[in-house]
Computed example of a mutant assay.
Amino acid sequence: MHTEESIARNLRDLGILAGDLVMVHASLKALGPVEGGAATVLACLLQAVGPAGTLMGYASWDRSPYEETLDGARLDEASRRSWPGFDPATSGTYRGFGLLNQFLAEHPGARRSAHPDASMVAVGPLAQALTEPHELGQALGEGSPLERFVRLGGKILLLGAPLDAVTALHYAEAIANIPDKRRVTYEMPIRGKDGQVAWERCEDFDSNGILDCYAAEGRPDAVETIARAYVRLGRHQEGFVASARCRLLDARDVVAFGVAYLERHHGAAVPEARKPADLSRAGRARAPKGGARP
């Protein structure tokens, strides 16, 4: 049975520092038995980043009608009328991205972004700056919480989660200068301040396969392909937390690598203004004071 003390020590040894901005992807099953379960794991993570640090997760939504409305598919009228509207304050999280995100969303002071399918949740001084705004059509690319997370110098923690869970690489897909990116449309039910639900249609990049070659059944997508290539370089930190093999990645570095990888293998000429080095320079901006499908 792993304890709060041992997990906290493991996180420090892995390289998480007080004041860090960390996006966590967790497999509680991989961690093994923990005294106090998910609540203990969350407490250890918040203790590791400290009161000056911020913890972020990919919450999504357990009732997201993404698949049901994808590329023109339409729910019948009875289903549309009865489908709940998304509310960041009360809607559940998608369990496929880990149970820990629900605990994070329910933590006092947690902030959750307004995009139903790609909603992010954060706790800490940067929570509001990370999660607002989050418009439909900006799920994981420019204008999204992921972009702000990367530019604020965040770290990605794979807490027993596999390499296909590096959600920040969807941001690399969105900004990479490559032709023939796949796009999708879908609809989301949004609950307004008056309590009424309105269905809104949006268009975005296809996070399930940015190019045809990454959307083939049984083959790794771009996120997993890039993440595998990145960890082979050894630029990340690695170790065990509880019973899980874990990795800590620098978000700016892995995203810059991802952009370069996609443009080298699939892209046209890269304009000077969009080279990965520019991403690194932009990421050095100071953080403000105070407060999707992997």
Results as ranks from 00 to 15, higher is better:
16 I>C: 04
210 I>S: 00
193 K>N: 14
2 H>Y: 05
259 V>L: 05
68 E>V: 04
45 L>V: 14
229 A>D: 12
183 R>A: 15
26 A>H: 06
28 L>E: 07
1 M>Q: 12
71 D>T: 05
19 G>T: 13
272 E>W: 15
280 S>M: 15
24 V>R: 03
46 L>W: 10
49 V>Y: 04
99 L>I: 06
19 G>P: 07
148 R>N: 11
256 A>I: 01
198 A>I: 09
273 A>C: 12
52 A>P: 03
81 R>K: 10
234 G>Y: 10
204 D>V: 07
47 Q>W: 13
163 L>W: 00
129 A>K: 03
103 F>T: 00
28 L>N: 04
113 S>E: 07
9 R>D: 14
3 T>W: 02
172 A>E: 01
253 D>S: 07
293 R>M: 01
183 R>P: 03
64 S>M: 02
119 S>C: 07
151 R>G: 09
79 S>P: 01
8 A>P: 08
204 D>S: 09
110 A>S: 14
39 A>M: 12
152 L>A: 12
148 R>L: 11
38 A>C: 05
241 V>P: 05
108 P>Q: 09
63 R>I: 00
93 T>N: 02
217 E>K: 12
41 V>H: 03
89 A>E: 14
122 A>I: 06
82 S>Y: 00
114 A>N: 10
33 P>Y: 04
126 L>A: 03
180 D>V: 08
83 W>I: 08
143 G>A: 13
90 T>Y: 10
15 G>H: 12
99 L>M: 06
243 S>D: 13
85 G>D: 08
23 M>E: 00
74 R>Y: 06
255 V>N: 03
24 V>P: 02
73 A>C: 00
268 A>V: 13
256 A>H: 05
226 I>K: 01
150 V>W: 01
227 A>L: 07
129 A>I: 00
273 A>P: 04
16 I>T: 03
30 A>C: 05
71 D>M: 03
117 D>Y: 05
85 G>A: 07
242 A>F: 04
75 L>Q: 07
250 D>Y: 08
17 L>Q: 15
158 L>T: 05
67 E>A: 14
237 Q>T: 09
50 G>R: 08
78 A>Q: 11
252 R>E: 04
165 A>E: 06
119 S>A: 11
154 G>D: 08
39 A>E: 10
133 P>W: 11
73 A>S: 12
267 G>I: 10
251 A>S: 14
282 A>I: 13
132 E>A: 10
5 E>L: 09
110 A>F: 03
135 E>D: 15
13 D>C: 12
119 S>F: 05
131 T>V: 11
268 A>H: 13
66 Y>H: 11
131 T>H: 00
240 F>G: 03
159 L>T: 06
197 V>N: 06
23 M>Q: 11
249 L>G: 01
225 T>C: 04
22 V>Y: 10
193 K>C: 00
120 M>T: 10
124 G>D: 09
191 R>V: 11
288 P>T: 06
245 R>I: 03
242 A>I: 05
219 R>S: 13
267 G>K: 09
220 P>M: 01
1 M>T: 10
284 R>A: 11
250 D>N: 15
120 M>S: 06
163 L>H: 01
16 I>H: 02
183 R>W: 14
108 P>L: 08
220 P>R: 02
271 P>M: 05
86 F>E: 04
22 V>T: 11
172 A>W: 01
73 A>D: 08
195 G>R: 10
74 R>E: 15
233 L>M: 13
